[in-house]
Design a protein around this nucleic acid. Structure first.
Lengths: 180, 180
DNA sequence: AGCGCCATGTAAGTGGTTACATGATTGT
DNA sequence: ACAATCATGTAACCACTTACATGGCGCT
């Protein structure tokens, strides 16, 4: 499941520009997939080339032209076909966990910062997922609901674990505890 | 944090061959990182070239030669340096969640299979993590313990959510419920 | 004055996957 | 007999990332 296919999928939920799609990736897929412009724009160009989407150029005053992409019937068929045959992989590379695995090689203050930063990221992800769940009341969709709920469950579990178990990594001396 | 650096890190825990390292990846890193021979062997060749590891060839009867790699002082320094400066990224691409997001486009029986397969994978991961925690009693290490615990927490949360919320996706008819 | 948002793209580079190539040993 | 395990590697390919290129608008 490459960015091409996912763009096609997102376009089943309504027409969008490359810029819009990036935002949809960031909101809808934030907890499990990411894509940059460098993969989205070429993907859209390819999809338009193969008639899976159409492209409408809209000139705006004072802004660059907007290219709005719409999925075609061919595209919708292709997407359904792709989903029906594909066997998903779960590829994850958490450099955060990889580093923590080797915690004894990391200076304590740097390690603390890593944990704080990751915690903040998780909090932001959670906030975004909750927002997504809130808007679901208007546009109910079982798949989206499942995924949003899944993200929230996992993210909450991760946050709770980090808060409760961080002491395993940052064994403060009593002097440090008094200073803080 | 590429495979090169992670190989170097694993070698801080003891000498190993490429084959051994793959196994360590599969056990220690299973829940958050993966690497195949196609990246491990070239990584080791590079590390040996740059004197971050040494390589000892051991001929065995009836088996291919074994190449045992050991980290050097230079390697250890390099690794510590790398960890101290690196800011980790959390890159995850779950094709499973991406597909489920578009559940309405997937035939019900295929969808059920996806969920079952993912559940099995999670169960296997959990079993492996519990095994890892068990062996930790002998070789205590704060980082490893934190990561193993983290994996278990997340994996359990994921399994529980999948069991409780799968009905959102597979709305069985009463006929299907009676048949099963 | 400067930052962030809107908006699109390309080119070079990176890093990892997949398929191929080889082959004995051990267990079922 | 057949599968799994042990054991190493290469070459072609692929998908994505990063850096670059451009530029006006609106807010503070």
């Amino acid at each position: 499941m490459d960015v091409k296919t996912l763009c096609l999928g997102l376009l089943t939920q309504g027409a969008a520009s490359g810029y819009d799609l990036k935002k949809r990736f960031e909101t809808c897929f934030r907890s499990f997939y990411s894509a940059g412009y460098g993969s989205i724009y070429p993907a859209l160009a390819y999809l338009a080339d193969t008639d899976l989407v159409t492209c409408e150029e809209i000139s705006q005053d004072g802004r660059p032209d907007r290219k709005v992409y719409r999925i075609t019937d061919k595209g919708r068929n292709y997407f359904t076909e792709a989903l029906s045959n594909h066997h998903p992989a779960h590829k994850m590379r958490s450099e955060f966990l990889a580093m923590v695995f080797f915690a004894e090689f990391i200076p304590p203050d740097h390690l603390s910062k890593l944990i704080d930063d990751r915690t903040t990221e998780l909090e932001q992800t959670l906030a975004q997922l909750e927002e997504m769940s809130a808007t679901l009341a208007k546009h109910p969709d079982a798949g989206v609901e499942f995924v949003a709920g899944f993200g929230q469950t996992i993210t909450r579990a991760a946050l709770e674990y980090m808060r409760q178990q961080r002491h395993l990594l940052t064994k403060e001396t009593s002097a440090q505890r008094q200073a803080s």
